[in-house]
């Protein structure tokens, strides 16, 4: 009889809308709380990181050029897909040690958070932009624009709500991201990637790499085509001198311990553009 032996999911990288294995061919194992192997997860290399940045860069302008309404629609669709895979996420979180009640709560909160940020897509520029009364015959306004390509170190705990809370505010404004996730949280991250892949989010907008944070961090920090990094997810012990290289292209370095819904997190990945034009005949 067939069907008795479950087909285990292969946890692969998520780059440019596809799920490739690491070009290095390496994997790392993630075990459940009992010590049983859950999966061999692809271990991303610096070359995978480079590919992910390339995909993110290519996707950035098209993503930012979509209307705010359209980005909102797509993000809302993501929430719907999260909702439909709630059970799967609960099971996943449980397998990596979250108790049932917390797991359910975390997925509920994650969906709510995602919806909250989705709704900002066509509002934040009204709150954060301005028309400036300059002293002269000029129309002068300031609009927020996405910073560009953002590298995110996924928080390990809570793995779902943590990543959702950093991802949503980054992409809602038109940034594209490369997420680096390690350990148990890799499973959550890849599964979120699967949701994104089936939610009309264009390829390359979100890229997810699983692997060793300390391996990949220097490549993220030093990459000249990454405009900003969110290192809120790095472990407390990380030596901050590792981050210094972010100055090589004046990256925006974000490190905020904010665990609630926050417009500030959205602002962290925005640049303010001021435009002047004369008023005349």
């Amino acid at each position: 009889m067939t069907g008795k032996i479950p087909i285990a999911k292969t946890y692969k990288l998520f780059i440019d809308g596809a799920f490739p294995r690491s070009e290095s061919g390496r994997t790392f194992s993630v075990n459940d709380t009992e010590g049983e192997l859950i999966a061999n997860v692809s271990q991303a290399s610096r070359k995978d990181f480079r590919e992910a940045v390339r995909a993110a860069r290519a996707a950035q302008l098209p993503w930012a050029s979509r209307t705010a309404y359209n980005r909102g629609q797509i993000l809302y669709r993501v929430a719907e897909m999260l909702e439909s895979r709630k059970t799967e996420f609960v099971e996943l979180l449980k397998s990596i040690g979250v108790n049932s009640r917390s797991a359910t709560r975390e997925i509920e909160d994650s969906i709510q958070r995602w919806v909250w940020y989705a709704g900002w897509s066509d509002k934040y520029s009204q709150i954060l932009g301005s028309v400036n009364p300059v002293s002269g015959p000029y129309f002068n306004f300031t609009v927020p624009e996405p910073t560009g390509v953002v590298g995110i170190i996924a928080p390990t705990e809570p793995s779902m709500l943590g990543l959702i809370s950093r991802l949503a505010p980054a992409i809602v404004s038109g940034n594209t991201v490369v997420v680096v996730s390690e350990g148990h949280s890799s499973l959550t991250s890849v599964t979120i990637g699967e949701v994104l892949a089936t939610s009309d989010v264009p390829a390359g907008v979100v890229n997810i790499l699983t692997g060793d944070q300390t391996d990949l961090l220097p490549w993220m920090v030093g990459h000249l085509d990454v405009n900003a990094i969110d290192i809120s997810g790095i472990s407390q012990e990380t030596d901050l001198t590792l981050i210094e290289e972010a100055a090589s292209n004046v990256k925006r370095v974000v490190s905020r311990q904010v665990n609630e819904e926050s417009l500030e997190l959205l602002s962290d990945f925005l640049e303010m553009k001021t435009v002047w034009h004369p008023i005349g005949r």
């Binding site: 300059v134 002269g136 303010m272 001021t274 002047w276 034009h277 004369p278």
Partner: peptide, 16 residues
């Protein structure tokens, strides 16, 4: 960060 259209090098305290 600053775009001057049909003008250039204009500054104002109200203008980021």
């Amino acid at each position: 960060g600053v775009i001057w259209a049909n003008t250039f090098n204009k500054f104002d305290p109200t203008s980021p």
